[in-house]
């Protein structure tokens, strides 16, 4: 298996891409949008901030307050930065559908430009983490898969599971799967620490190390099923279930056939 690195593209990627496309062009061109945001002229920026404020007042202020100062039910957004807005809104987590639950990934409500405008508005309130640019996200060039694996197992696997499938936290909270998440959003999550997730600072987990983690996640995502059905990649529980259902089921079934009289 010399060329294991050259995994054929996983076929699930195609339908996933299709879904992404259907979800709105916004998601696909997120990074591009982000790039333009960083090279916006002053005039464009002012315009975007104004637009963003309008969107904010319409869609977000009921919970986060008229000036993003937060309320009893939601946190202040002053100083959370553009990266945080991009992560929360472009992955569909915000606006939340149901306050009782943890915000989960779903179809984004706002399109690309609206997200960029919102991000620009929130970033204008106080400085915070910026959306990483395309050049900053070249994980194939700047990241190492093997090193990323080690970093992932030290920093991420305890919540997101060894294969990035997600896992349980306390009181019904959970760490979501990191499979099928765009690199920019993985990066933003690490620098902003959304919801229960802590922040991974650039000094303790350098940008190159973050890219290595992304490189490993993307490699795990593309990894074909080397030993047959992956059974969810969640460890021995599904294996045990399969033995007690299919394994013993087949064997006992055959034992019944073996001991019934032929007609």
């Amino acid at each position: 298996m010399k060329r294991l690195s050259k995994y054929r593209r996983h076929r699930i990627v195609a339908p996933l891409l299709l879904i992404f496309a259907l979800l709105g062009i916004g998601t696909t061109f997120q990074v591009a949008g982000a790039t333009t945001a960083s090279v916006m002229t002053a005039e464009e920026r002012t315009k975007a901030i104004a637009e963003g404020k309008e969107i904010f007042l319409r869609g977000c202020s009921s919970c986060h307050g008229l000036n993003a100062e937060g309320s009893s039910i939601s946190p202040s957004l002053i100083g959370v930065g553009a990266a945080s807005v991009d992560f929360q809104v472009a992955t569909g987590r915000m606006p939340m559908a149901d306050m009782s639950q943890q915000a989960m990934r779903k179809t984004p409500v706002y399109n690309d430009e609206e997200v960029a405008a919102l991000a620009a508005y929130i970033a204008s309130l106080a400085p915070g983490p910026e959306i990483p640019t395309d050049d900053m996200l070249n994980y194939e060039r700047d990241g190492s898969i093997a090193e990323g694996g080690e970093l992932f197992r030290t920093n991420c696997a305890m919540c997101h599971n060894f294969a990035g499938q997600g896992g349980a936290l306390t009181k019904g909270k959970y760490a979501p799967t990191v499979m099928g998440v765009k690199p920019v959003h993985i990066y933003e999550a690490m620098i902003t620490g959304p919801q229960a997730m802590p922040v991974f600072s650039d000094k303790t987990l350098t940008p190159e190390e973050k890219l290595s983690i992304i490189a490993w996640i993307k490699s795990a995502e593309k990894e074909p099923q080397l030993g047959g059905l992956a059974l969810g990649r969640v460890g021995p529980v599904t294996e045990g279930l399969l033995v007690w259902t299919l394994g013993l089921g087949l064997l006992v079934g055959i034992a019944v056939w073996l001991t019934t009289k032929a007609r």
Binding site: R11, G228, A230
Partner: peptide, 14 residues
């Protein structure tokens, strides 16, 4: 050993 093929319901298999 490095030939993979897509099988419906099973995904990319060796």
């Amino acid at each position: 050993t490095d030939l993979f093929v897509f099988i419906p319901l099973m995904g990319e298999q060796n």
